[in-house]
Amino acid sequence: MPQWFIRGLRRGIVTTRYPGHPDSSVSSLPSPPAFRSEALARPAHQRAAPRPFPPNPYGRGAAPSAATVADLLVAVCPSGALRRDGDTLVFDVGACTACGACRRAAPDAVVSSGEFELAATSRSALVKRIPMTAGAAA
């Protein structure tokens, strides 16, 4: 007990001052991906690898061969957070588990967003539309 007290005095205050001041651990938190629009429409150089997680038996099918980087990303996403809608990549932040499969599959098209303050008051605010600009290769 006395040792704990002394250690506590030595460490000082460890509590985060989060809402008022940024927390120091923010950069190490897992965060959903951000996409580079200009890289999404490029042809994919690799076939979609098998899903990294145990395959979901309830749908979404096996990964097909991908024509563009966007198709590749849709195929490797294990939680179904990505979907293609014409020339738009639809990204559901709410469904994303920040597993990093898309970043591993296409490191030049996907970066970490670094965002962790993701709470939304409506579900539709979490669905983001990412345009695939720069030369429709599909």
Binding site: P33, F35, V93, S113, E117, A119, A120, A125, L126, K128
Partner: peptide, 12 residues
């Protein structure tokens, strides 16, 4: 709420 203003498009 912050997320409704985020685009998740990376500009590099």
């Amino acid at each position: 709420e912050k997320v409704s203003g985020l685009s998740f498009i990376a500009r590099s």
